[in-house]
Simulated scan of single mutants.
Amino acid sequence: MAFEFIDAALQARAAASLLRHRQCVGKVSAREIEVDGEAYLNFASNDYLALADETLSLTAQPGSRSSALVTGFQSVHSAFEAQLCDAFGYDRALLFASGFAANTSVIQALFNDPAVGRESELFQDKLNHASLLDGALNSQAKLTRFNHNDITHLRARLEKSKAKNKLIVTEGVFSMDGDCAPLVDIAQLAKTHNAWLMVDDAHALGVLGDNGLGSIDSGIKPELLVITFGKAMACQGAAVLCSQRVQQYLLQFSREYIYSTAMSPMLTEIAIKQFAKLRSASLQRAVLKDNIAYFTQTAAQLGIPVLPSTTAIQPVVLGSADNALAAQQQLKAQGIWLTAIRPPTVPQNAARLRITLTAAHTSADIDTLLNALKEAI
């Protein structure tokens, strides 16, 4: 029978405790979630500043009606791109429907020409997001991986490279480990080896920096900066910040941008409002910082093996997928909502509970989590 591989693949996933399921959520906030009529403390949200809990009044139309290169690029898009350029210090910006789309399409567009690909090399951190790796695998450039946050290994890779065009790709904050890339050192390496730097700052935006602008507050300015709106901004979409010449190139060769309907004007208006809130959310950032410190200190006192992280992402690695699922179910029974992250999202034998803290959590919430977590693991 044709397509028997579908059943075989699903059975294999189930046998390995790797089968994924969706959960239909009822009410949800940065602090609480309702699933199947039951309420839980929510420690699985990327709404780090609790900005999604507020309602908005909108005037923009819901649909853009066409691609940005036909009639889809409207004044609301232009205004938001200008705001982003002014805030981050870039010449140009392009809006995308999602961070995944932005990451994959930019890398593919840059290295889509086989002739360019033959003289180009991509250097990617081994823990980079799937969207960054997919972009590389679907490009014509050579892909070289370097050990996670390992400057010495990256330097060795760069020194061996004969490529004319070199692009280093990393994340500002890594989505599964919660640690930060050594961007100052990477940027210096890039300069030394005449390479460009691309940073996916999805989980740093809103959380890092005095004004929530993420990794650029460390003083670096990568040639390509990708920010996404679905995490701390608590809305939808993404932007690529770059030079004028790169923007012009992407307008010609980014298939995702050329052939997709432009981002909804209504979603863009929401993003403008949320970006303004994010920049002024100093109190929420302070509360989040305190919550992170309280969590890490108390976890250490209780002997809970949390990976080293100073961000809102606090992973507890449990090894096997079975162990992670069992801990998830035990925590659920205690009124805590967490997600077991399993391969292939993380490496083999690195299944984990990915805890995310927000500004909406209280010290009592964190105590409840940690006491239940100690029992579960």
Rank of each mutant, 00 (worst) to 15 (best):
I168E: 04
D150T: 09
M176G: 05
L224M: 15
G214Y: 12
D150K: 09
G212I: 02
D210A: 10
L189R: 05
R157M: 09
S139D: 10
R157E: 11
G135W: 03
L205W: 07
D134L: 11
R157L: 03
G209Q: 04
T228L: 06
L208F: 12
K164M: 15
M198F: 02
S175Y: 04
V226D: 00
I186D: 03
S218D: 06
D201C: 08
E223T: 05
P222H: 00
V199S: 00
S175G: 11
Q188R: 10
I186F: 01
L208C: 04
K164N: 14
D201N: 07
A195K: 02
L158S: 06
G212H: 00
L158N: 06
S131D: 08
E159K: 13
D179R: 08
D201W: 09
V169C: 15
L132S: 03
D179F: 12
H203Y: 11
Q188D: 03
C180R: 14
L137I: 06
S131W: 02
A156K: 13
L224G: 03
A204S: 15
K160N: 08
M198D: 00
S161W: 10
G178S: 06
S175F: 04
N165H: 15
L224T: 01
I216L: 05
A141L: 08
M198A: 15
L225G: 01
L132E: 01
N194L: 02
L137S: 04
N147M: 10
D200H: 04
